[in-house]
Simulated assay, not measured.
Amino acid sequence: MTALLEVRGLCKSFGGVRAVDGVGFALHAGEMLALIGPNGAGKSTTFDMVGGQLRADSGSVRLGGVELVGRRPRDIWRLGVGRTFQIAETFASLTVAQNVQMALLSHAGRVFSMWRRAADFQRGQALDLLDQVGMRAQADRPCGALAYGDVKRVELAVAMAHAPRLLLMDEPTAGMAPQERGGLMALTRRLVVERGMAVLFTEHSMDVVFAHADRIIVLARGQLIAEGPPQAVRDDPRVQAVYFGSGRTFERKEPA
């Protein structure tokens, strides 16, 4: 089966420091892949090179056979790559529905078009997207009045407005309560199954990673040291050494 995303030999240096050194992995449609590692491992640099926020010094990032290295983030977005951020990015003064409508306007290439009132543009589709993330009932509330967990759901609806083939999620559960974390990731899983898209996510919460990822890749000092299903990664001595340095094992935690 051909992978949707193929990363090969990815390298990035900052001055004399090699932040990412020959990282490669593949991601298939319908799969959730977690990218983890201790602080300074190179995971954020790798993540940003996939999304185009950083340009790789060498290596390849292919989405459906199309090379992404060297393309601007907006061009990569147009090719079907969505993104959510560690700190949710929405327009606080706009309503929940208007935030999603803005994304739909951008997807249609009509952000600067004045031929039609933006408030009326594809409201039905915006409401459908909000229904998918459990936020339709709050469609007319300002985003600034929402609880943070609900803002994260709105951000996910905004990302879905572009119908991405690949969704990049940077610390998706940061700042959320345990029950909210489990709910958001379960929602993401449902969207992955329903839409047949792929998700690459970074995450510091190990309970989230091991409960929701299909596979995990682990970086340390810019290099990939382990890759596989959660149980295999949990038991990998190299991963245990990197995280704990003492042979301790990850605690098993049930999804919140």
Rank of each mutant, 00 (worst) to 15 (best):
A3V: 02
L4K: 06
L4V: 05
L5C: 04
C11E: 13
F14V: 12
V17N: 14
R18E: 13
R18I: 02
D21S: 13
G22Q: 06
G22A: 04
G24I: 02
G24H: 02
A26Y: 00
A29N: 05
E31P: 06
L35Y: 01
I36S: 05
S44R: 06
S44E: 11
T45F: 01
D48L: 06
G52F: 04
L54C: 10
S60G: 14
L63H: 15
G64L: 15
E67R: 06
R71N: 10
P73L: 05
D75S: 14
I76H: 10
W77C: 15
V81R: 10
R83S: 12
R83P: 09
F85G: 13
T90P: 10
M102R: 08
L104A: 03
L104G: 01
S106Y: 04
G109I: 07
R110C: 03
V111T: 12
V111E: 12
F112L: 14
S113G: 12
M114W: 09
R116V: 00
R116L: 01
R116W: 02
A118R: 13
F121L: 02
R123L: 10
Q125S: 05
A126K: 12
A126Y: 05
L127F: 03
L129I: 03
Q132V: 01
Q132I: 00
A137R: 15
D140I: 05
D140Q: 14
P142M: 11
P142V: 15
C143K: 10
A145E: 15
D150T: 03
E155I: 01
L156V: 12
M160Q: 11
H162K: 15
A163F: 00
R165W: 05
L167R: 12
L167T: 11
T173W: 04
A177S: 11
P178H: 08
Q179C: 02
Q179L: 12
Q179V: 10
R181W: 03
R181E: 12
L187F: 08
R190V: 09
V192K: 08
E194S: 14
E194A: 15
G196I: 07
M197L: 15
A198Q: 08
L200N: 05
T202Q: 06
E203M: 07
E203Q: 12
D207V: 11
F210A: 06
A211E: 11
H212S: 05
I216D: 03
I216H: 00
L219N: 08
L219R: 11
R221E: 11
R221M: 09
I225S: 08
G228D: 07
P230R: 03
A232P: 01
D235Q: 14
D236I: 02
R238D: 14
R238W: 00
F244Q: 06
G247E: 04
G247A: 04
T249S: 12
T249L: 05
F250G: 07
E251I: 00
E251Y: 00
E251A: 11
R252H: 03
K253H: 14
P255V: 03
